[in-house]
């Protein structure tokens, strides 16, 4: 059996890669992909701990809900990015500064 800590280390590495993408990327679609990596890391954590919960399956259940919510979030975010592209002619989040105070 694979020990629990190995899953946790893999998910920590995935999470940090996603964080790096979110911080440094200049493209909204790549930022979205970084967020997807972070969500996958957290699902891996939930699923790894869910091995010790055979009766209730809480971890796997929440993993399913997270997958569904991430899909919904990606759909809405892509629509917003397309609208932003139509309006600003760029999908760099730094260039859309009409709301800057």
């Amino acid at each position: 059996m694979i020990p629990l800590q190995h899953f946790l280390f893999i998910s920590a590495i995935l999470f940090c890669l996603g964080l790096f993408a979110v911080i440094t990327r200049k493209n909204a679609i790549q930022i979205l992909m970084g967020i997807e990596l972070m969500i996958n890391a957290s699902i891996l954590n939930l699923v790894a701990f869910s091995r010790f919960d055979k009766v209730d399956n809480t971890g796997q259940m929440f993993a399913l809900f997270i997958i569904v919510l991430a899909a919904a979030a990606v759909a809405v975010a892509l629509v917003i990015i397309m609208n932003l592209y139509k309006r600003v002619k760029s999908i760099d989040p730094n260039q859309s500064d009409t709301l800057r105070g």
Binding site: I2, M33, I43, S50, R51, A63, I67, V74, L78, I81
Partner: peptide, 28 residues
Amino acid sequence: YVFALADFVALTQIVIYVGGVLVLLLFA
């Protein structure tokens, strides 16, 4: 996920993420 003994989550991941989210990303 399969190695963490969560086969259903793995299947859902393939169906929703690979089939839905990534196709949406490519489309956008």
